[in-house]
Amino acid sequence: MWEFKIVKLKLCGLIGAVVCLFIMSCSENTSHKTLLFAHSLPITHPVHKGILSMQEILNEKSGGKLQIKIFPDGQLGSEREMLELLQIGSVAMTKVSAASMSSFAPEYKVLGIPYLFRDSKHMFGVLEGEVGKKILEGGSEYLLRGLCFYDAGARSFYTLDGFIKTPEDLKGKKIRVMNDQMAVNMVNDLGGSATPMAYGELYTALQQRVVDGAENNVPSFVTSNHYEICKFYTVDEHTMTPDVVVVGTKFWDTLNEEEKEWLQAAADESVAKQKVFWSETVKENMEVLKKANVKIYNPDKSPFIAKTKPIMEALLKDPTMKKIIDQINDY
């Protein structure tokens, strides 16, 4: 009971602090509006660099009338907590995984299906077309309007002991996953033991062998320093789940049409730059892994694809999901 009260007090304190920041940002200079943009990644991450480019573009387009103040590195909470802050209007914007958005807007679930996209070209062809636009706009019903998708690469397994050459190699292994049911189902279907855990707790959990491994993209594997502990990276690329730049509709609705155009245009233009940052970072990170004696293995993906098919088949039973999946497969 006391633990619950403490957590509640901490949350109330966080919200109160954010509200104060928001009020200060609006009142300190009536000639411009400041958008509080919170996210969980470190400042060295290519997604943060994409957000910096959006900040710069928006400042130029608006002549300084619309500005972004960034709070990186989970300063204002987890991805779920930040989305909740957007919904109540305490924070204007955030960047989260599409997997986190799926807990609020069901259409995003489709983007977490294993082996849904053939490659990154296929993925961005879909995301930057009508399908992607509908998914982004669909979140507005839940007070979370998507502005654009950022490249988050492909997620693969990394482990403490040995490669995951086939799904059989996952048997008996506890693998950390995001707190997302589809990620849990995927690891379990492959034969592993899915272990949802906060990202910030993972380094210690790997050190203490609470889990045997995890799954993520190369930049996150490196910036988290998990490569210092896990020396086996299997490039199975089971999911290409993009990141999403989201604005709370409570803030969005306070903007006039010109301001909305500036913000959307800044988001759109930052996408191309973020893709370059991502590509460059992956190349640099692969060199880091090589120097750190991390072993890389490229498996035959067909056994992984076969084992995870039930996830897509389950979603195909939902008419709304089936329509989106069919559009993606036909692209």
Rank of each mutant, 00 (worst) to 15 (best):
C12K: 11
H32S: 15
K33C: 12
L35N: 04
A38G: 13
P42Q: 11
S53I: 06
S53P: 02
S53V: 01
K69T: 02
I70V: 14
L76W: 10
M82K: 08
E84I: 06
Q87I: 03
I88H: 03
V91W: 02
A92D: 09
M93T: 08
A98S: 14
F104T: 02
F104I: 09
A105G: 10
E107N: 14
V110F: 08
V110Y: 07
R118M: 10
S120W: 01
H122I: 05
V131A: 02
G132F: 00
L136G: 00
S140K: 10
R145E: 12
C148W: 06
G153K: 01
A154G: 01
F157Q: 01
Y158D: 03
Y158L: 03
T159M: 00
K165M: 04
T166W: 03
T166P: 00
G172D: 02
D180F: 08
N185W: 14
N185D: 14
P196A: 15
M197Y: 09
Y199G: 14
G200M: 07
E201G: 09
T204W: 11
T204D: 09
R209T: 12
V211P: 11
F221S: 14
Y227N: 08
D236E: 15
M240N: 04
E257Q: 14
E258C: 06
W262L: 03
W262A: 06
L263A: 07
A267Y: 01
A267N: 08
V271R: 10
V271A: 05
V282C: 07
M286F: 07
K290W: 08
K290P: 02
N298Y: 15
N298C: 13
P299N: 09
P303I: 04
F304A: 03
A306H: 13
I311P: 02
E313T: 11
T320H: 05
T320M: 10
I325T: 01
N329Y: 08
Y331I: 04
